[in-house]
């Protein structure tokens, strides 16, 4: 039932080969908004992993047992986004009540994450076909994909924050200050990550 090869490939794929930010262009708005300080980047990263894990599991279940079964796929977009928005709201309220410390660390980022293309993006990607097995994503694979995509996002975010903190002290031309130089940095990082393209451990679909 659990295919370990598939899980390893999904993990490596989500973090390096198809990194959500640097390769798939998902989650850019918070990426550039929160990457100015290393501490806030780490907090945002943690929150994103958490939300993506929960969102992946819930949306997969709803998609598999309700939308596909009753031929309601055209409601996918609206159902997914409402589920995600609702989940994040619930999580925020639960954190506030039961774990004030965690709420302090993650809480402010949670509403931002609702409209993060990365969360809706991973939910939608999980409804597609798993490239490695050639079949649909199973539940475990979906959750793995969600978690590891979050890890990939956090990795890129933390790397970016580290660089940006140093950039603050570098002499940058006035027109390129702030966002443009951040984009160039991201571009160079994306170039580096491009080196991972084509990496695969085990040959599967098609022999």
């Amino acid at each position: 039932m659990i295919n370990p090869v598939s899980l390893i490939e999904i993990s490596v794929g989500a973090v390096f080969i198809n990194n959500f930010v640097l390769s798939r262009f998902l989650g850019l708005c918070p990426f550039f908004g929160v990457s100015k300080k290393l501490s806030s980047a780490a907090g945002m990263g943690g929150a994103v992993i958490f939300v993506m894990a929960i969102a992946s599991s819930f949306t997969w279940v709803i998609n598999h047992y309700i939308l596909v079964k009753y031929d309601l796929l055209y409601l996918q977009t609206i159902v997914f986004i409402l589920v995600i928005a609702g989940l994040v709201q619930l999580v925020e309220m639960a954190l506030q009540k039961y774990s004030p410390a965690l709420y302090e660390a993650l809480g402010i980022f949670l509403p931002l994450i609702t409209t993060n293309c990365a969360v809706l993006g991973v939910a939608l990607l999980n409804t597609g076909v798993n490239q490695i097995t050639g079949k649909d994503y199973t539940f475990i694979e979906s959750v793995f994909n969600g978690v590891m995509s979050g890890v990939g996002f956090s990795l890129a975010l933390i790397l970016m924050a580290g660089i940006r903190e140093k950039l603050e002290f570098a002499p940058v031309g006035k027109a390129l200050e702030g966002l443009p130089i951040a984009f160039i940095t991201a571009g160079l990082m994306a170039l580096a990550f491009l080196g991972f393209a084509g990496l695969n451990f085990f040959l599967t679909v098609g022999g």
């Binding site: 076909v129 490239q131 050639g134 393209a197 084509g198 695969n200 040959l203 679909v205 098609g206």
Partner: peptide, 10 residues
């Protein structure tokens, strides 16, 4: 109709 794993897609 057949599918096979390419460089970055099926």
């Amino acid at each position: 109709r057949v599918g096979s794993r390419g460089y970055s897609s099926t």
